[in-house]
Design a protein around this nucleic acid. Sequence first.
DNA 1: GTGTGACTTGGAGTCCGTG
DNA 2: CCACGGACTCCAAGTCACA
Lengths: 71, 71
Amino acid sequence: MTKATRKAIGARIRSLRKQNGLTQVTFANMVNIERAYLSRVESGERNPSIDMIERIANGFGLTLSEFLDGI
Amino acid sequence: MTKATRKAIGARIRSLRKQNGLTQVTFANMVNIERAYLSRVESGERNPSIDMIERIANGFGLTLSEFLDGI
DNA sequence: GTGTGACTTGGAGTCCGTG
DNA sequence: CCACGGACTCCAAGTCACA
C-alpha cells in the first residue's frame, strides 16, 4: 500500500531532479540532506517524514500539494 | 519553518475530523493509529512520516495532494 | 555519479494511565 | 472527550566506506 506511494514519490523526485539537470550530489547539497539518504528516498526504500518531503518539494520550488499531485 | 507546517497539518486534521463528527479515539481507530499520538500530531508536536500522513488523508477519503492543499 | 551495507542516535510511534 | 505523562520499541535520519 504505502510502499507504492514511497516508490511514486521517489520517482517524482528523480524525474524533477533530472528535469532540472541536477545530480543527486548537487540537489542533496541544495536542500541540505545526505546524498546517500536521497538515493534511498528516490529508490522508495525509505519512509521520509513530512519535514523531509517539504524540504525536497521546496527545493524544486513547489508546495507540498503541488509536489504530491497525482500521487 | 517546518514547525509551522506541522501546526498547519495538525489544524487541518482537527478541522476535518470535527467536520466529520469524529472524536480522536474514533478516528484513531479508523486509521489504526494510537489516540495519544493523534493528539500530538494535531497539536503539531510530532513530525509524522509520509506513510502516516497518507493513512490520515485516506481516512478522510482524500489524496495526499488534496489533504495538503493550501499548506 | 549512484547504490548499498553497516552502524549510531534521536525521535517516531505504541501502550497504558491520569486530571 | 482530550492533553499530557512515563516507559517502552523501532525506524527515520545521519555518517562512512566501498562497489
